[in-house]
């Protein structure tokens, strides 16, 4: 029997190459049980490859580790039994009905009562009355909920969600996340990759990966604190003109427009203040020192990473 260690995912030095391209390089991470762990990073940074290595779909070229206490190299079949993996694309059968999809999953996992369990999940998902609808005809939000339902049907200990809410409307996204928190409260560990900052902020802990390397990890407030970034928000007036003038000024590492305001950030507070000083008296524009947003931190990490790897 599994001894249920406190760490759900514990991997060291994971490396995966496709041909001569290293997609994941020397990646180590620990995910505590019961946590919602956010996995962030730009497109093509190796998030999906990492998730596939964790659930035994890919064999790492180097590195080792355990998932739920099982070796990711040699015990993939045991991991598969206890992990729910939701792929980036809708991965249920569009030409099967809601019920047929759920019953198929239930049978694959050898559940004792596939019909009953599928019916229970239909009710939990709020899909009663639409059991016989073909999965392909569901709206984007419902498809995601159904896919999540299919993943959680065999009562996994760990959920791996690869960009689960891409292309889903805000309301459906919020409901999706409420469900994820409810599942975590029941003791499930969730590793979720996302591009949405508001989703990242809903995670207990996040890790940032770029160019196949894990750059940083921790709680949201720790990451913001550790970034050493100072941000000023300029609002009012012609911010696009201002953005144009400020870009690439020494001392300014990042300029990002947010609607009618502008986030101007730098890693060196003194240099940043010196750089914006000439613009502070510009009429119509108010400057306030603010906390950098998570997005500021990530975009800064990304540009630093690009400097290091390219």
């Amino acid at each position: 029997m599994n001894t249920a260690p406190e760490i759900a995912i514990d991997v060291r030095g994971l490396t995966k190459r496709f041909g001569n391209r290293t997609v994941v390089h020397d990646l180590s991470m620990q995910v505590p049980r019961g946590a919602i762990y956010g996995f962030l990073g730009p497109n093509g940074s190796g998030k999906t490859t990492t998730i596939r290595m964790l659930c035994g779909l890919l064999t790492p070229d180097e590195g080792e580790g355990t998932c739920l206490g099982y070796d990711i190299r040699t015990e993939a079949d045991k991991i598969k039994l206890r992990v729910g993996y939701m792929t980036q694309r809708f991965s249920l059968y569009e030409d099967l009905s809601v019920r047929e999809n759920l019953e198929f999953v239930a049978r694959l996992y050898g559940l004792a009562d596939p019909r009953g369990d599928a019916q229970g999940m239909i009710e939990r998902l709020g899909l009663s009355g639409r059991e016989e609808q073909l999965a392909g005809t569901l709206s984007g939000g419902w498809k995601q909920r159904l896919a999540l339902g299919a993943c959680t049907l065999p009562s996994p200990e760990l959920l791996l969600l690869d960009e689960p809410t891409a292309g889903v409307d805000p309301k459906a996204r919020r409901e999706f996340w409420n469900e994820i928190h409810a599942l975590a409260a029941e003791g499930l560990t969730v590793l979720v990759s996302t591009h949405y900052m508001d989703e990242a902020e809903r995670c207990h802990e996040i890790a940032y990966i770029a160019y196949g390397e894990l750059l940083t990890h921790g709680t949201v407030s720790r990451l913001i604190e550790r970034s050493g970034l100072v941000t000023y928000t300029a609002s009012g007036g012609d911010v696009s003109e201002l953005a144009h003038e400020l870009t690439d000024k020494p001392g300014i590492d990042m300029v990002a427009p947010f609607g009618a305001s502008l986030h101007v950030s730098g890693r060196d507070p003194a240099a940043l203040e010196a750089a914006i000083a000439p613009y502070r008296e510009r009429p119509g524009i108010t400057w306030t020192r603010t906390e950098p947003s998570l997005e500021d931190v990530f975009i800064d990490l990304m540009s630093q990473a690009r400097d290091n790897f390219q």
């Binding site: 659930c55 035994g56 779909l57 079949d77 598969k80 039994l81 992990v83 993996y85 939701m86 792929t87 980036q88 694309r89 809708f90 991965s91 249920l92 059968y93 569009e94 999953v105 694959l108 996992y109 050898g110």
Partner: peptide, 13 residues
């Protein structure tokens, strides 16, 4: 092509 193979392979089959 439909993307169902990936999730199929991640299940215990």
């Amino acid at each position: 092509e439909r993307g169902t193979m990936e999730s199929l392979l991640s299940m215990p089959i």
